[in-house]
Design a protein around this nucleic acid. Structure first.
Lengths: 217, 217
DNA sequence: AATTAAATTCTTGTATACAAAAAAGTTGAC
DNA sequence: GTCAACTTTTTTGTATACAAGAATTTAATT
């Protein structure tokens, strides 16, 4: 089986899980899925293990793997961890970011600004992601970056909810400016704090998240 | 195959890798290992996937899995990430730690002190680990805690090196006091900074790490 | 002798077969 | 009708078989 096929199965399963093709707590049926993808159980089980590693499913020995939709508590804790990872990347990036990286960051930020002006949430989403990835890279600590990227990916479906909060784009934009300023000045403590606050889910954002979470069920 | 057997294989493989039973970059032979453990290739391949997830080995499609001993750069980055994770846990713990947890922390710290007085590095190592785990728990953010625990485990073999640095125990102890003080006062910024500094590999510690790393090859 | 192409061997990845455990269904006693 | 024990079915976990790609060896040509 060529690699693309195997990856395709994994990607498809991830997609199916995050888009809600399975109920919360549902068992993933090896046989059904192997029939669905036209392969044997072996590659399905392999994909399962990767899903376990990414935290999308939970494995109970001799029972199978079950999708785990994080509850409100888990979600808040994950966003909290994300905020801390971003803060850490910012902390390091403030000391290490190169002038060319800084320029790239400003460029992306301008694209964000433009998206806000056009009220284009999807465009903003894309550029925002790139903005944050640049900061992960600028931290020059690949282990930390990998953690941040992984969790960011995991939170993607929930982050999308946040975007449609009224006035969120404008506020997010001004937070970007503050982050950029701290990074430019090399103020690691402030960069960390700004990023933490930017990502953290509090106040209205928190309420909004819970509302949409309930709507999903 | 009962679960204990499967876990046993994984634990054994981990142990073999960290204790250097394999050369850096060596391919793990599925057939040899399946004979060694008296099982078929299937559970071996399953264990491989978990090793990949934990970062102990690298998988190259159609080639096999290869042990990856992190080089100096990777190691420093991993310690850096560890320092940031500890700082994050400390940051949250300072706000959330309960008085009973604080008491437990003080207790453990006294055991550390005792170990230092007796110059018992192994005892200190054990209590120190417990000290840090208590802080992870006090952060009340299970995702963050899991990250910290996982990386701590990964760095274990390298951390052991650090202990035998002359005067390290005493210095480490005074750092613990500072951490404890910050946590008691609820000063999250200081708790974070103290923990970051406590875990970070800099100056003599850095030199020591590199020396022992070279000695290993 | 060196280099390249073909052939062989070895290894991974997948399919299938089978064993053992868990779940579901059935029967019987109360 | 309910509950419990037994039987059947389903499902996971492991072993084995097989196909296809990678590595190695052999053979041939210059």
């Amino acid at each position: 089986m060529d690699v693309r096929r195997a990856d395709h199965i994994l990607d498809d399963l991830e997609q199916m899980i995050v888009t809600g093709s399975f109920a919360d707590g549902e068992r993933l049926d090896e046989i059904r899925l192997s029939e669905h993808f036209g392969v044997s159980r072996t590659p399905i089980r392999e994909a399962f293990q990767k899903l376990v590693a990414s935290g999308l499913v939970e494995q109970r020995p001799r029972r199978g793997v079950f999708v785990v939709e994080p509850g409100p508590v888990e979600l808040v804790q994950m966003f909290e961890a994300m905020a801390e990872l971003e803060a850490s990347c910012g902390h390091l990036a403030a000391k290490r970011i190169s002038s060319s990286e800084l320029r790239a960051l400003e460029e992306i930020n301008n694209l964000c600004k433009q998206a806000v002006a056009e009220n284009d949430a999807d465009q903003y989403y894309t550029h925002n992601e790139r903005f944050h990835h640049l900061i992960y890279d600028a931290a020059q600590s690949s282990y930390l970056r990998d953690l941040a990227v992984k969790l960011q990916k995991r939170l993607k479906p929930y982050r999308r909810m946040q975007l449609h909060l009224r006035g969120r784009l404008e506020q997010s934009m001004s937070e970007h400016e503050a982050i950029l300023s701290a990074l430019t000045k090399g103020d690691s403590a402030r960069a960390a704090n700004e990023l933490r606050g930017h990502v953290a889910v509090q106040g209205e954002k928190f309420h909004h998240l819970l509302t949409h979470l309930n709507a999903k069920r």
